[in-house]
C-alpha cells in the first residue's frame, strides 16, 4: 500500500503493508532515531508521537489510517520552542528521564501542557453538539489525577510521580509566561 504523509516536515510516499504499525514504519522505513523498540502489545508507552498535533501511541496506529497525516516525532519536536519549556523544567528540577523514555515522557508532558493551556488545534468535532473539542476542553481542565493517569502511560520507572508532577507544574509556568508575552 502506498501511503503519502508528512513525517517531521518531510512529505513522504511510503510503500508499506497496509496494517503495519506506525512505530515499525518509523523504525524500519523512515529510520527514526527516537523510537528504539517495538513492544508488541506490552503497552510500554515508549512510542509516543504527535499525529496531526495530538499525542498517540504509534504502536496502535495502522498505516492505512495515515493517509495525508502529519506526524511529528521527537526528532523534530526537540527542535521546537515548546520543547524548550519542558527541557528548562527538567533542568530546574534537576530530574531528567532516562534515555529510553526521554522522548516519550517529553511528548506526554507536551500533550498534558496542551490540554492545560487549551492550545490544541485540529480537533475532531463533537458529534453531539457539533462544537469542537477545543471548546469543550475549556471546561475540562486536567486535574492532578488525570495528569497522573496520563504520565502512567509510560511504564519506565526511572522517575517517580512526584518528580514528574513537579516538572509538569514548572513547564506549565514557562508555557503560560510565553503565552502572556505573545499576547
Amino acid at each position: 500500500m502506498k501511503i503519502e504523509c508528512t513525517i517531521d516536515t518531510k512529505a513522504l510516499s511510503l510503500s508499506v503493508n497496509s496494517n503495519k504499525p506506525l512505530s515499525l514504519m518509523l523504525m524500519e522505513d523512515v529510520g527514526n532515531r527516537s523510537l528504539m523498540s517495538h513492544c508488541k502489545g506490552e503497552a510500554c508507552g515508549n512510542c509516543i508521537v504527535l499525529l496531526n498535533g495530538e499525542a498517540v501511541l504509534s504502536c496502535i496506529i495502522p498505516a492505512f489510517r495515515l493517509k495525508d497525516a502529519t506526524i511529528t516525532t521527537f526528532d523534530s519536536y526537540q527542535k521546537t520552542r515548546q520543547c524548550r519549556d519542558i527541557e528548562r523544567a527538567y533542568a530546574k528540577t534537576g530530574n531528567t528521564p532516562c534515555p529510553n523514555c526521554y522522548a516519550s515522557k517529553t511528548l506526554i508532558i507536551e500533550s498534558i501542557l496542551q490540554g492545560l493551556t487549551n492550545s490544541r488545534t485540529n480537533r475532531m468535532p463533537n458529534p453531539m453538539t457539533n462544537r469542537s473539542q477545543h471548546e469543550d476542553n475549556a471546561s475540562e481542565m486536567l486535574n492532578k489525577q488525570d495528569i497522573i493517569q496520563e504520565l502512567s502511560l509510560n511504564t519506565c520507572q526511572c522517575m517517580d510521580m512526584t518528580e514528574l508532577l513537579e516538572i509538569v507544574e514548572i513547564a506549565l509556568t514557562f508555557r503560560r509566561r510565553k503565552r502572556v508575552r505573545r499576547n
Binding site: V56, L57, I60
Partner: peptide
C-alpha cells in the same frame, strides 16, 4: 485509559 488512548 489515559486521554491519549481514549481518543482512539
Amino acid at each position: 485509559a489515559s486521554q491519549i488512548v481514549r481518543h482512539q
